[in-house]
Design a protein around this nucleic acid. Structure first.
Lengths: 208, 208, 208, 208
DNA sequence: GATGAATGAGTGTTCATTCAT
DNA sequence: CATGAATGAACACTCATTCAT
């Protein structure tokens, strides 16, 4: 129980209380999955009563939706501060680093959401529309732009983009269990290798 | 109900009945997830009574385990018929093609299993040990061998291998909904592009 | 359904609700036995939902345990107000009367408990320790004390005590079906005869 | 499993097979109670298949009935070889000894039956009619006869008879767990003490 | 607004019984 | 006759949701 104080936390603003409940739900969903998680456990984790949850959310499923919106929002914000497009290594490195930062920061959220995304059609559609498609489209435009500039080879941007996003995301829900496995040193190495694969492939380059 | 005949299917061999139930469970798990699936629905899908399920499997969870073993078995078999290691493009193409074939063939199974793998520690461990680790190790050895041969650049094989496997698998549970989306033509294109990314990266190659 | 009011009994104190459920369970267990009784029927008898039972007791078996504790408590209390030990007839009569009173008062409880006591080892051990052993020890001490005083013959107090307790209790679970069969008049007769047997036996006494 | 031989016991006479099943049922009922016992377990204990049980008995309950008839039959047979009625101590001793012998011999049966007798009205009625009433009536007649002869005091024979039967039987289902607790030496002591209580009571006798 | 007692539909699982072989 | 695979009604128990306080 993260938050315990004799009588239940009182007098928070609506937004604070919502965040408190959502944080608890995220943690519980992440550790046991959506179906196996109980409202009782979420309430305990949040330090409120079960009834209170229903003053802020219509249903348990609603918590999941709210979580996915939080992720979608936080997921796609910082596109500023990017290096110049011309420096492709710096640029792709920044993109991949940003995604790994996001994975590290929201691993709980992702681990809570992904299993249901794979199974729930509404959720999946929302995830595809709000998270994957924008990311894919952004990446695809960059690839095409650099291809036009003669820096990237002619490739199917939608397929290659999917492969790249899939490769990076797989570290979030397949290869890693804990954000801690993404500590500073190892994340840098990860980014370097992955970017190296994306830009140069496995094969030795002739000159260069 | 897939299998309907007046009084319920009778007198199949043990293996047939087991497969019949496992097929039904796979289908139902894939469409609603493990927890949301009911034994009632699995029984209906298999065309047997609920009681019969328990004559063959100890519990609902046992169905999941049995499914994952089926996948592990089928997952790692044909490593013969591979092109010579020296022809790296043909070799990697064969590997990736084989994985896409497996995805296409067992998409139901994979979609049924992955959500629980992400959430159930025992299952995850089994999946990592029986499926991911062998695949990663096999791929890693090939990468190192080609690196020694001076064909591949010096890279961290475990990281690059994870990225490659993650990229390919993501088509199985993230980007595609139906095996049908992997029809002959599109799968070939997919393989070509993905192999191109893995071997040569995005950047234009100087001469060659 | 003993307790019916439109929407189910609401907002009783914890102790009241517990007693209400326990009373219902006692009644149902007494009439069909523990295993044959269903939680559904107990809930109906108590006028609450099945779920409510589980807010107060962890399991159906827990109801049985709680019942047996109620009996153990009420079973061994009033040992005051007893006649002087020297007046053995009055003393034994008081003891036997007290046991018959207890039987009459708790016949439901006893009839609910005894069948399971005979079959469940934990329950049996608890019953022996909490009910039979104290009673036997108390009775044994009295017999020995009166033997020392030269009033009782030299007998094995533990065997004779068991026979006496067995004789009395058998009226509770073997010979009688209803507390009503133990109405005032007949109970007095019962006590007189049983006490007569215990103190004087069947055989005619020489002088006296 | 008492009786195991590769293919299930074959070719017994109807009576032998019935006895075999009934013995198994008795053992299983005695150890877990009627409701908790499963036909699967009875079949295993008897070394036959579940289906075979139903070739000989209509239902699980029918096994219980058959058992109770076996007990009733065996319960009331040896009334020959009794000492002369005039020697009351010898006579009562013989009766009580016979009951203890019966308890020792059929403790399994009794432990299997009693819990259900306490709870099942049909069974109880059968038990009362076939076992208790004849015994009570037989004992009552002896008491009355000896009373007429001036040897026994004037007492209510039905009450005293119940107390005596209850006292003796309580050793069968309340005080003892195992037939072995009734070995030769201790049973003799038991009989002596109980008969002493019945005939002479606790109080010292004036002359004699 | 916050509570938590009460709800009851729904779940996985068991097991007496049937019947084709 | 004996079998044991198949059945399906029942069961104890869970948990998201409601609502009186």
């Amino acid at each position: 129980m993260s938050n315990q104080n004799g009588k239940g936390a009182k007098r928070l603003t609506k937004a604070e209380r919502e965040a408190q409940i959502l944080d608890a739900a995220t943690k519980v969903f992440a550790s046991k999955g959506f179906r196996a998680a109980t409202t009782r456990e979420i309430a305990a984790e949040a330090g409120v009563s079960e009834g209170t949850i229903y003053n802020y959310f219509d249903s348990k499923y609603d918590l999941l939706i709210a979580m996915s919106q939080r992720l979608a929002l936080e997921s796609l914000q910082q596109l500023d501060d990017l290096p110049p497009e011309e420096d492709v290594r710096a640029y792709i490195t920044a993109l991949v680093t940003d995604r790994f930062d996001m994975l590290a920061k929201h691993m709980d959220l992702i681990r809570a959401l992904m299993p249901e995304v794979l199974v729930d059609d509404d959720l999946r559609q929302a995830y595809v529309e709000q998270v994957l498609t924008p990311a894919l489209s952004y990446l695809g435009q960059y690839i095409e732009s650099r291809t036009k500039a003669g820096v990237f080879r002619e490739m199917k941007a939608d397929i290659v983009g999917r492969a790249m996003i899939g490769a990076v995301m797989s570290f979030g829900y397949l290869w890693l269990r804990e954000p801690s496995e993404l500590d500073q040193r190892s994340q840098e190495e990860l980014v370097t290798e992955v970017v190296g694969l994306f830009l140069d492939g496995l094969r030795v380059r002739p000159t260069e």
